[in-house]
């Protein structure tokens, strides 16, 4: 079932085209990666999908409904965790509910049961500065999830983390996703990361950015720990490199 459709989006800044005729789809419960070099217009596309930017042409549909240029429908998470330093983790996670008009107490009760699922036990009353980078990204994802259990846009959420933490985060992330089935569009410039976590990959390349290809990762989920060492994995990687 189609959850989110991006139809023929084009965008230019000051006459310089950044995105050209982008069309992608996201099905219910899918993790889809958008892979491309930095500065290739990926973040611009996300800003358009989330309604923060107006496209020059094209449409964004959520469940068939036009949400072009309307913020507040899909949730958005960036590389920077953007946790508010003056709010505890539980209050950060509860923020989307407060924005929707929930009372502080009921927002907290809704958030609390999620802490265990996101591997954040014991951090409720802590402030962001007291957590490690990995834990902060977890909290940021929880906040993203509290905003919308529908569609999430993740913009290079793990790229600021060191390699070991990153690999631990991938395991954690796939684990969480097994449980919550959040339809996700995931931006990355890391080919291994894309193959590891996604069901499908769109390749974005060129200037202005265009969709250069689509790759379906057939490997079953949950994926084995050594998936990234198998010949299949290398095949996918070869194919992506040839297309980019």
């Amino acid at each position: 079932m189609k959850k989110l459709e991006v139809k023929n989006i084009s965008k230019s800044f000051d006459g310089k085209p950044v995105l050209k005729d982008i069309s992608i789809e996201l099905n219910q419960g899918e993790i889809v990666c958008l892979l491309g070099v930095s500065g290739g217009g990926k973040t611009t596309l996300f800003n358009i999908i989330s309604g923060l930017l107006t496209p020059d042409s094209g449409q964004i549909l959520l469940d068939g409904k036009d949400i072009t240029n309307q913020p507040g429908y899909v949730s958005y998470m960036l590389q920077k965790d953007l946790l508010l330093p003056y709010r505890t983790i539980e209050d950060n996670a509860a923020l989307p509910l407060l924005l929707k008009g929930a009372k502080k107490k009921e927002a907290r009760t809704q958030v609390h049961p999620m802490f265990a699922q996101f591997g954040l036990e014991g951090t409720q009353k802590k402030y962001p500065a007291q957590l490690s980078g990995g834990m902060r990204q977890r909290a940021a994802l929880l906040r993203t999830y509290m905003f919308s259990k529908d569609v999430a846009l993740l913009d290079e959420p793990f790229s600021a983390l060191d390699t070991l933490t990153k690999s631990a985060m991938h395991k954690w992330y796939l684990n969480v996703m097994e449980n919550i089935k959040l339809s996700t569009l995931f931006i990355t410039h890391d080919i291994d990361e894309a193959i590891l976590i996604s069901d499908r990959i769109y390749l974005l390349s060129g200037s202005p950015g265009e969709i250069a290809g689509e790759i379906i990762i057939k490997e079953k989920k949950p994926r084995k720990d050594d998936f990234n060492l198998t010949p299949d994995f290398l095949q996918y990687k070869k194919k992506i490199l040839s297309l980019l």
Binding site: G51, L52, G72, S75, Y76, L82, L99
Partner: peptide, 11 residues
């Protein structure tokens, strides 16, 4: 960026 994030949440 934080303001942008809140705007994307419809604040």
């Amino acid at each position: 960026d934080s303001i942008g994030l809140l705007r994307s949440m419809g604040a």
